[in-house]
Simulated scan of single mutants.
Amino acid sequence: MDGREAYLLSIGTALPGDPVDNAQLAKALGVSEEWIEVFIGTRTRHFARDFATGEVRWSLADLCAAAAERAVAAAGVDAASIDFVVMGTATPDALMPATVNMVADQLGLDQIPTYQLQSGCAGAVQALDLARTLVTSTGGTGLVIGGDVCSKHLDLRRDLTAAAPSELVNYVLFGDGAGAVLLGPEPTGEAVALRRVLNRVTGLGRKPGQVIEWFGMADRDSGKQAINEDYKAIEESVPAMAEEILWELLDELGWSADELDYLLPPQLSGTMTAKINSRLNLPGAVEVSCVADTGNNGNALPFLQTELLLKQMTSGQKALAVAVESSKWLKAGFALEKL
């Protein structure tokens, strides 16, 4: 790769509509507000559908394009300088055309390579991994996007009094949103080096911890849950996996735990994030979290965290992000250093 590096030049994010708090959600779903606050630990979330009517107000492409436009504007460059687009999502607007191409269309991009990666919480990191490889091998500048619209799977007008806990939890856990960064070969703009990316599947022989179904015309009335979480397995496995990711990245980087200024932990929920932070035990690193206010909006989260990070980060400081995907047990993470 000719010794090239990849640098984060700018960032942009997008959250749809006004935040929906626990009181609103509890009333609509017929569940306890206290249960949401204690079990999930999330205060608010944003939905791309109107909370009262279910009307779609933003598509995933809309949110991703808005985040990308903000990233491009923050970098002070013309969209024509973008050489490729990589996007990670678990909830595309359609199977075809790929949502990344609808985003490119909204941005006025044409005649460049586009890539869409289908993944959950690790998808944004996978997109960074691919983009970093493209930047360091070609010297090009890439737009990296992560986003999800989880509310498309959740019928907020449905009677949930008899819903299984594995289904009900998804109504209070998830939100919608998008984020984007520009990645390039020179340290301009934010001048933050992307030092390392970890991206690995570790679920050989293991039952998935999360399943999101796709319903075609032939099976849409099958009665299957759209989203199914094995929350017990997730609670048991994710903290240990997060710890493994942390120390593996530190070892690869040659950084000591004491050198770490910021930690961007997994963002499944406010309660789970607190448990993970307790296990990681890095009192010298400032936690950068947002899930309690944004809900779990999947592939948007690493970029929402990074946006908060960049408002605090100063020259010479180091940050490490950890992400775990429970679908088929994926380890992911990345390291940033401010120049």
Rank of each mutant, 00 (worst) to 15 (best):
A6L: 10
S10G: 06
T13W: 03
P16R: 09
V20E: 06
Q24L: 09
A28P: 11
G30D: 05
W35Q: 09
E37M: 12
F39L: 13
I40P: 04
I40N: 02
G41Y: 04
R43A: 07
F47W: 06
F51K: 11
S59C: 09
S59I: 03
L60D: 04
V77A: 10
D78V: 02
A79H: 11
S81A: 11
I82D: 07
I82A: 00
I82Q: 02
G88E: 09
T89R: 00
T91G: 09
P92R: 03
A94I: 10
A94P: 14
L95Y: 15
P97A: 02
A98I: 04
M102C: 13
A104Y: 07
Q106I: 02
D110K: 15
I112P: 08
Y115N: 11
G123D: 05
A124S: 09
A124K: 00
L130D: 09
L130G: 00
T133P: 14
V135H: 00
S137R: 14
S137T: 13
V144T: 04
D148T: 03
D148E: 03
S151R: 01
L154V: 06
L154Y: 02
A164Q: 15
S166H: 12
L168R: 11
Y171E: 04
V172C: 13
A178G: 09
A180T: 08
G184K: 01
T188M: 13
A191H: 10
L194Y: 06
R195Y: 03
T202P: 01
R206N: 10
V211M: 12
E213M: 15
W214C: 13
F215T: 00
Q225P: 15
Q225C: 12
Q225L: 13
Q225E: 12
I227T: 04
I227A: 08
D230R: 12
A233V: 05
A233E: 02
I234T: 07
E236W: 15
P239D: 00
I245F: 01
L246A: 00
E248S: 12
L249K: 08
E252P: 14
E259Q: 14
L260C: 06
L263H: 02
L264C: 04
Q267I: 02
G270S: 06
N277R: 14
S278E: 13
G284C: 14
A285G: 05
V288L: 11
V288Y: 02
A292L: 11
T294R: 10
G295K: 06
N296V: 01
N296D: 06
N297L: 07
G298W: 05
L301I: 03
F303S: 01
K311E: 10
T314Y: 14
Q317R: 12
L320A: 01
V322P: 05
V324E: 08
E325A: 02
S326N: 08
K331D: 05
F334P: 06
A335S: 09
L339G: 14
